[in-house]
């Protein structure tokens, strides 16, 4: 049975925990708003790039397609880029990514394929290090501070491109938490290399006709499709990785906000129940003392 003093101490400590978690919740909420805005600001560029790519890819002959688009022709070595957060206290945010990645590694290796890893974010490095350290070719910690910037994505992509040019992998996939709402995130794999056109798969089957799908305009190309595609594709990689980083960052803030909200609520409940116990004990003690005094007086 804890003494009154112990209880007082516990109530105090839970109260200060609650103060911290509620402050963290506020901070996460503010950051979330900023992260959402950043994600929105990045949209016009990504949209236009997508439109250009799809009209370019529609007009290109498969034999001339660069390896970034067509792939290396084999699927032996997979590179997984894992985007996580640098800091914890955000619920299942990092755990769910790590779980998905581990499952993917296992299924790929069961099929006899090789896996390499690039981890972005300290938590991802920590979570994957124990089982998969030998697969990790590169890790970026504290890269996304204070917020993801395009140059960070570029840095990562340059590393990926170097590996690709050296033939170190065939397929590259990014794993990140997609921002669904402030309350929900979704672990999403996004294949980078070979590049996959988002939705409208019938467009590629349109055998080079470029039949005015997507935007409706029929473009002229200068100098020609192949040259533009060759410079557009690497840039598009950076854009995709950047987008994954932004989504992940927004998700992280959302996850932290939810986690801290729960923690604050739990702390409140705990304080309530501790206070009840404390008051009861105090009352019992007072009653006890009264009984002692009264029975002492009666004995006289």
């Amino acid at each position: 049975m804890p003494s009154l003093k112990d209880l007082r101490g516990r109530i105090k400590s839970v109260q200060s925990t609650r103060r911290i978690t509620s402050a963290m919740k506020m901070v996460a909420a503010a950051k979330l708003k900023k992260a959402q805005e950043a994600a929105e600001d990045a949209r016009p560029y990504a949209e236009r790039m997508e439109r250009m790519l799809s009209s370019l890819a529609a007009g290109i002959v498969p034999e001339n397609a660069p390896p970034l688009l067509a792939g290396t022709g084999s699927e032996k070595v997979h590179l997984l880029v894992v985007v996580t957060s640098d800091r914890g206290l955000c619920g299942g945010f990092n755990g769910s990514i790590a779980r998905a990645v581990k499952a993917r590694i296992k299924s790929l290796e069961d099929q006899g394929q090789e896996v390499k890893l690039i981890a972005i974010g300290r938590k991802g490095v920590t979570l994957l290090r124990r089982d998969h350290n030998h697969r990790m070719v590169e890790k970026y910690e504290e890269l996304l501070k204070p917020a993801p910037a395009f140059e960070h994505a570029d840095e990562v992509v340059q590393r990926i491109m170097r590996m690709f040019e050296d033939g170190e992998f065939d397929v590259c996939t990014v794993y990140y938490n997609k921002f669904v709402s402030a309350l929900t995130q979704e672990v999403t794999p996004l294949q980078l290399i070979p590049f996959q056109m988002p939705e409208s798969p019938d467009e590629e089957a349109g055998d080079g006709g470029g039949t005015g799908s997507g935007g409706g305009a029929q473009y002229e190309f200068e100098p020609n499709e192949e040259t533009i595609l060759a410079s557009l594709l690497p840039k598009n990689l950076s854009v995709q990785v950047y987008r994954a980083m932004l989504e992940s960052f927004a998700s992280e803030q959302g996850a932290r906000m939810t986690a801290m909200d729960n923690a604050t609520r739990n702390a409140g409940e705990m304080i309530d129940s501790l206070s009840i116990t404390y008051n009861r004990m105090r009352q019992a003690q007072i009653t006890n003392e009264l009984i002692e005094i009264i029975s002492g007086a009666e004995a006289l």
């Binding site: 029929q218 473009y219 200068e222 100098p223 040259t227 533009i228």
Partner: peptide
Amino acid sequence: GHAPVIAN
């Protein structure tokens, strides 16, 4: 009114 173009 320029013709649609994509260029580097």
